[in-house]
Amino acid sequence: MNTSQLSKELEAFLEYISVTRALNKKSISAYMGDLSSIEAEIEAPLINIDSNKLLDLLSKYTNKRTLNRKLSSVNAFFDFCYSNKFSLEKTKLKSAKIPKLLPKFLTYEQLMAGIKLCDTSTWIGLRDAALLYFLYASGVRISECLSVKKEDIDGEWLLVRHAKGDKERLVPIAKVALDALNKYLNEMPYEKDYLWCNYKGDKLSRISAFKITQKYLNVSPHVLRHSYATSLITGGADLRVVQELLGHASLTTTQIYTHVQKQHLSETIDVCHPFSKTKY
């Protein structure tokens, strides 16, 4: 990045996010890529641009997620300029509305069909089956799953220690998943503290876990987390209970699954209610 071509305000913002906020290189690069490209296009300091002109400039981004990322960068810059008295006016541009997408999920039947593909005559196959059972039975994030140690399982309960935001939580595990886990551990030729290992006995990596779920189910591990939540919601579980089980800090994050619940209820009415087939 050629900082000599940046305005003094943008140079100050670069120092702020690099030193004061200590953002990682990827985040810094994203911010400065968005902001410096705008300055280069208008051939003037970004702080001087009129809001309407800026919106016209950004209107070429038809992908709303891309547009919102750039708007977020611009708003962060304007907020910095206002806080540091580079600007007397507090400017905030509204983000574009993005329609909520229903999370992709698997049905129980799809999961079991994938598990049947595992070669359980080998300990690697047993591991793969156990991992699929475990992810669907617990709803944990893959990072949480791969950090689990044997001591974290007490009876039919899993203590999630390395949760997002460093918040521990207890999650019940179905007996069928524990049985699959025990079969795998009994056959695994290594003595390790952690549950999941590769053929060398090293801790299983995220990439390897992704390859496992892709191989049998053609999805990422996170889809099994969505599947877990969806099965609970459609089964009638309280939303706040699901929030606690998933480890969501906010109920708003969990509410995406209410769309799945509404869809499920609508389909139930279509199938079961006599009026769904009655003409007026």
Rank of each mutant, 00 (worst) to 15 (best):
V171P: 01
S220G: 10
Y61C: 02
W157E: 07
T234V: 12
H162T: 05
P99R: 12
K94V: 13
D202L: 14
T66W: 05
L135W: 04
V171L: 13
L146F: 11
M32S: 00
I47L: 15
M32D: 00
Y16I: 02
A76K: 03
V171D: 08
T3F: 07
G165V: 06
V19N: 12
Y199E: 15
L55K: 11
P45Q: 11
F80H: 02
K164W: 08
I115T: 06
E39R: 13
E109L: 07
E156I: 09
T91A: 03
T258F: 04
E89I: 13
F210V: 10
N24I: 05
E43Q: 14
P274Y: 02
L170P: 03
P221W: 04
Y61F: 11
L88I: 07
E43N: 12
A113W: 10
E168L: 08
E9I: 08
L106A: 10
T91M: 09
T91Y: 09
A163P: 07
T253L: 05
L106T: 11
E187H: 05
Q214E: 14
A113F: 08
L117C: 07
L159G: 00
L55C: 08
Y16M: 05
L159T: 15
Y194W: 15
Y31A: 04
A249P: 01
N48T: 14
F13E: 00
T254D: 05
I47P: 07
K277T: 05
G33T: 02
Y190I: 02
V148Q: 04
I115S: 06
K90L: 12
K8R: 14
P221C: 06
Y136S: 09
K116R: 11
S36Q: 09
G33R: 09
I49T: 09
K90R: 15
L224F: 08
L135F: 05
Q263R: 15
L23P: 03
K200F: 02
S276T: 04
D128S: 00
V241A: 05
T230S: 15
R141Q: 03
L57P: 05
K64F: 08
F78L: 09
I42H: 01
L245R: 09
L71H: 05
L239N: 02
I38R: 01
E151P: 03
C118D: 02
E244T: 07
L170K: 15
E151T: 13
N48I: 01
D79I: 01
F13V: 00
L54N: 08
V140T: 09
V241E: 06
